[in-house]
């Protein structure tokens, strides 16, 4: 049986006062996946998410939640944490969470009980009756996160969820995301924190200047960045000719032990083991051989600076 994607956007476009904020963006968020929605500031991520949720109307294209337009009924299955976050400061933590639970269709009794349980689970049981304005910033952020997921939505959209969080709360949120994903929920979150996206996501959608520039699995994104190999040798002999067939070679000085360092940006399809074997066969005395794993950050910078839409093999 085919499961419809949690979100399917097709040809979305939005212009504000003549400025194209989003241009013909299409992508899907498969059910059960954790998808990172990445892009620099002003890339159009928030506008795309707002259109996906029906908060603003697109100039062109459409967004489908669970295969249907973003009606209130569909939105009841969505939990959303906006980038600009806030809660009613004069209400208690429990009241805020219960209010959003009720807005999502829960009964008053269920909403209250669920709010109490969630606050206990997040370590805020003692603060349930406190007004939000009396809570610390970190505690208030937890309340906001709980309010977004209190109704156990099928699809959770988090817009820059890590911004403004201290490292402890970042780790907590990461745990929450993984926990929700493990429970079978679909997650879409936009972020600037590449390390987290790389750790958590199955897939990424990358936008820049209002356009999608990448949509695929994390490994596919990493594949667009050349892998590096750092080689340390104990003689000043020039080995660039030996290495040149594997990729772009550069000399990068000496390490603290006095070894001469070379760096090879490997061509596509080249395994670092090939380089190692060639060095050994040529009798090069290695003091260091270090394949450097590419990171999503590098892929992000490369894809964004390239600017042109890239599609990995088999991607959309």
């Amino acid at each position: 049986m085919m499961t419809s994607p949690a979100l399917d956007v097709e040809g979305l476009a939005k212009t504000f006062s003549g400025f194209p904020a989003v241009r013909n963006v299409s992508f899907s968020v498969p059910a059960g996946s954790i998808t990172g929605f990445l892009g620099p500031n002003g890339a159009g991520k928030t506008t795309t998410l707002r259109m996906a949720l029906g908060i603003i109307r697109p100039d062109a294209g459409q967004a489908l939640l669970f295969g249907q337009p973003p009606t209130v009924r569909a939105l009841d299955r969505v939990g959303f944490l906006p980038e600009e976050r806030g809660v009613y400061r004069k209400m208690t933590a429990e009241q805020v969470i219960a209010l959003f639970a009720r807005l999502k269709g829960m009964t008053a009794g269920d909403a209250r009980n669920r709010a109490r349980e969630a606050l206990e689970r997040f370590g805020l049981g003692a603060s349930a009756g406190k007004k939000v304005k009396e809570l610390s910033k970190g505690m208030a952020q937890k309340v906001q996160i709980i309010a977004a997921i209190i109704h156990e939505p099928d699809f959770i959209i988090l817009d820059e969820p890590f911004s403004g969080l201290d490292p402890v709360n970042q780790a907590m949120l990461e745990e929450v995301i993984l926990e929700q994903a493990a429970a079978g929920r679909t997650i879409l979150f936009s972020t600037h924190v590449m390390a987290q996206a790389e750790r958590i996501c199955d897939r990424i959608v990358l936008m820049t200047r209002g356009q999608k520039v990448f949509d695929g699995k994390v490994d596919e994104a990493l594949a667009v960045v050349p892998r590096l190999v750092t080689i340390g040798v104990d003689s000043p002999d020039d080995i660039s000719a030996l290495l040149a067939r594997f990729g772009e070679v550069s000399q990068s000085g000496n390490d603290p032990d006095g070894a001469f360092l070379w760096q090879v940006a490997l061509n596509a399809g080249i395994d670092p083991q090939h380089v190692l074997r060639a060095c050994v066969e040529a009798g090069v005395r290695l003091t260091r051989f270090e394949p450097v794993r590419p990171h999503l950050h590098d892929a992000f910078v490369r894809l964004v600076s390239a600017g042109d839409p890239l599609q990995p093999a088999g991607g959309q």
């Binding site: 707002r50 949720l53 029906g54 908060i55 209130v72 939105l75 969505v78 959303f80 944490l81 906006p82 600009e84 976050r85 806030g86 809660v87 009613y88 400061r89 959003f100 807005l103 999502k104 906001q144 309010a147 977004a148």
Partner: peptide, 16 residues
Amino acid sequence: EEKGGKIIELLLSTVR
């Protein structure tokens, strides 16, 4: 006050 507290967007993702 609500705008200052940045609650509007959260509400609009839930209600029309």
